[in-house]
Design a protein around this nucleic acid. Structure first.
Lengths: 226, 226
DNA sequence: ATTCAAAGTTAACGATTGTTAACACCCTTG
DNA sequence: CAAGGGTGTTAACAATCGTTAACTTTGAAT
């Protein structure tokens, strides 16, 4: 199973459907296209999607009707309507049917993409995984903790920030001045010494796993290896 | 304190601002109007709102800039942009700044209202219940209570306000000065100490669940994690 | 081998934060 | 109006964190 974001697109006009599908696919979305509302609802019940993009006017079953049926099953599924109609009443009808956004034709692909992302962002916001494996440790940045089997070490905020930068550049040289600018704001002499102190502290806390090392590269910076 | 939905409206054109304000008020929203972005951001830091409606082009500080600053403080606050510009690039810029919707002028009041309601609906799904899960606790802001299975703790108003802000920024750093401006009105030294006292009180009341912690980030603020 | 700058380490200091308690200010109640 | 509980602020002291300083060790260049 791929981990791509899955979009169900219902659009009866073949040319437009193709353009939308391809545009979304270039952004690495996985798009399933249906030619009418009936087909779309059928597919919806049989697969899982992250977001629905529904044309309002379609043969057999219109988009609003699809949305209403979907809402009976799934209250949270993000739904965007596409429509040629631009009267306000249609927009209102769309929202009342449980739509989350309403895009009037003609619209640019960029705008569609950005609105799709906006709706998805909200859904996915709580899902970030915060635990990072570092050798035999588990590092949790937000909790500022390092766990080595049963041993739980707590880090200060500075230590956690520094470790995160090192991890993001693991096995590569992390430049002194980069760190200093990012964490301390500027790279003057004293901040540099302060950073060295924190490297010492991190080394102490990371020495439970002998495979982890913070190596100094004289004149350049540090390298976290494991 | 009224329980109306609070909207912060930033719009420099007086005639349009008045129309919007009155339209929203007929729907029983409470609207605070600001004439430019600077004013809007000031007010935002000192009061609490449910949604922001920002004109993009304004003197002194534009709406996009306001949104970016707001996002540094509050990741979830719903933001709708209003704009005369209709180029796609502006829409994209708006979403990138953290906006949740983008309405092109001229728009109908009805459309604004449905879009406001659509965004609020999503947010209030979590909160309309008024009961917010915090680890194994259940927090009820209006009742100022914290329940841990059978144990019911009552909070003072200050405690409840502070906890709500922490929850709205869970797993992220909540800035000292933001809290102080929002709850105490200004961030002088003594209010700062007072806030620290309340953090202590909250920690005590939250220590039934060992997974909940209020972490201090020296010089910046506090972070609620669970 | 000598020299000097960079980095390692430890300790001390000052600023920030944590905690407790005393105090002041409401409300409500008698 | 006095008493008392509840609430928020101020003050005092303890603990923690980040920086600075001092001294030591390392490594590269001469």
């Amino acid at each position: 199973m791929s981990n791509k974001i899955k979009i169900l697109l219902a659009e009866d006009e073949p040319a437009l459907a193709l353009i939308i599908k391809e545009s979304l696919e270039t952004r690495n979305f996985e798009v399933t296209h249906c030619k009418n509302g009936q087909e779309a609802f059928d597919v919806f019940t049989k697969q899982t999607f992250d977001i629905l993009v529904l044309d309002v006017m379609m043969p057999i079953k219109d988009g609003i009707s699809v949305a209403k049926d979907v809402r009976k099953i799934d209250k949270k599924m993000p739904i965007i309507f596409l429509t040629a109609k631009s009267q306000t009443t249609d927009v209102i009808e769309g929202f009342n049917a449980g739509g989350n956004d309403y895009l009037k034709k003609p619209f640019s692909m960029e705008e569609l993409i950005v609105r799709v992302q906006s709706l998805l962002g909200r859904i996915h916001e709580d899902q970030r995984e915060e635990k990072i494996a570092v050798g035999n440790y588990v590092f949790n940045f937000t909790k500022q903790t390092l766990r080595f089997s049963e041993v739980l070490l707590t880090l200060t905020h500075r230590e956690a920030e520094l470790l995160l930068l090192l991890i993001e550049n693991k096995n590569e040289i992390l430049d002194r001045s980069i760190v200093l600018k990012k964490i301390w704001g500027n790279d003057d002499f004293f901040n540099g010494r302060s950073m060295d102190v924190f490297i010492t502290k991190l080394r102490k806390k990371l020495n439970l796993d002998p495979n982890i090392q913070i190596i100094n590269v004289r004149g350049q910076g540090y390298k976290l290896i494991y």
